[in-house]
Design a protein around this nucleic acid. Structure first.
Ligand SMILES: [Mn+2]
Ligand SMILES: [Mn+2]
Ligand SMILES: [Mn+2]
Ligand SMILES: [Mn+2]
Lengths: 218, 218
DNA sequence: AAATATTTTTAGACTTGTCTAAAAATATTT
DNA sequence: AAATATTTTTAGACAAGTCTAAAAATATTT
């Protein structure tokens, strides 16, 4: 049995280690989970004893196959719930994450199976992130950061890297949503800001923004 | 802040005390929650200190106004989720309770408000129990136990008293659901069993069954 | 290579909620 | 009204998860 707390640690390790590829440090987990390094040390030892993680003292931690499966399952639940909140309950994309953080821990195979069907088997969540299937397989589309697009490229917005409420509200304010088409009309070498055109209106976004917006070339 | 455990105790006190009217004993709570009386003593003291319950040693416990509000809110959430599971996710009425036990603890005002709207403001859950409104008001319909109906009464099934999976499956097996019309064709004084007719087919149900099925006279 | 700084672990304490065993209060029989 | 049975509370222990302070290991500077 995996406790709610363990699930959250496993999820953090998964995300910080880029889908569980890389080693994750104690401090990184502590920062992500807003807890103390000492607490992380204890928990990481426990996850290791339970077979969810590989851990050697002072050497950081990775997830085992079993741990990754748990992580992917939580991610699947989290993103399905985000779709539900967005599409069925009219939540805006900056409101869904916090509620999904709670809903992702509900335990019921059937619930998720039926929810998936009810939502018509969505492939991506409202932030453009892929939803793992029942077997944990993740279908990733090829996307680039807007900061990597070239002048005159026409792009379609397909996801966000930062999905904080602040960033999402910024995008809303400027009329940028998933599916929005935009053209790169200038790149300023000095500060790496980018001029984009949406619906014939042109404006400048900073490199920080461009670095957090995923697009695909049209 | 009310913990998940506290919520469950408050809910138990609410139900055992008939919507918080009566005093509830330590042992009754322990039995309901499948825990030990000593644990209940501790918790009840804590609920009392926090202002959710009135409690005097050895005298049992009742909910305060604040406690009742918390209880009613959990019941509201529980029943709305049951409607969701039943109507949108095709759960049968014997499967919904356990999942709703988890979902009732999700904290988000907006979630419940939107869920309520999405379900088109249902007044009763799939077991026939009333759903409290946003202000905690409960609209109860006048229903009687089938055991109290008279011979030749034509009744419509409007709820269950026992909503255990076993009982609900029994009802399914005999074609009894909410809204089912049935006629009482005989009452046997010896064992208080009742003969009923549904769709021109007649069969006998024990007093135990009749005592757990709510009906209204057609 | 030493000295210093940073990261990580350990030791011990605290909180929440649980349990067992024993004591105290209340209820029921005789 | 005593004796007995039942219910309830208390005392002390335990598990999970957290924290602070100090020690140990690793990394970075000089
Ligand atoms: Mn999210
Ligand atoms: Mn998301
Ligand atoms: Mn229920
Ligand atoms: Mn119900």
């Amino acid at each position: 049995m995996v406790t709610l707390t363990e699930e959250n640690y496993i999820k953090a390790i998964y995300h910080l280690g880029k889908q569980g590829e890389n080693n994750v440090s104690t401090n990184a987990i502590a920062k992500e989970m807003e807890t103390k390094a000492s607490s992380v040390s204890d928990m990481v030892k426990k996850l290791s004893e339970k077979g969810y993680a590989d851990y050697k003292k002072y050497q950081g931690v990775t997830l085992t196959k079993e741990g990754k499966l748990i992580a992917v399952n939580i991610v699947r639940k989290h993103r399905l719930w985000e779709v539900f909140l967005s599409e069925k309950l009219n939540f805006s994309w900056d409101e869904i994450h916090d509620v999904a953080e709670q809903l992702e821990h509900i335990k019921s195979e059937k619930l998720i199976k039926q929810l998936d069907a009810f939502l018509d088997y969505p492939s991506h969540d409202p932030h453009g992130d892929p939803i793992p299937d029942e077997n944990g397989r993740i279908q990733s589309i090829d996307k680039i950061l807007l900061s990597q697009a070239q002048v005159n490229n026409i792009c379609i917005c397909v996801g966000v890297k930062d999905s904080s409420s602040e960033f999402l509200k910024y995008l809303d304010k400027h009329g940028i949503a998933l599916g929005t088409e935009l053209k790169v009309t200038n790149k300023e070498p000095f500060d790496n800001s980018i001029t984009i055109t949406i619906n014939h209106s042109e404006f400048i976004i900073s490199n920080i923004i461009a670095n957090n917006l995923f697009v695909k070339l049209a």
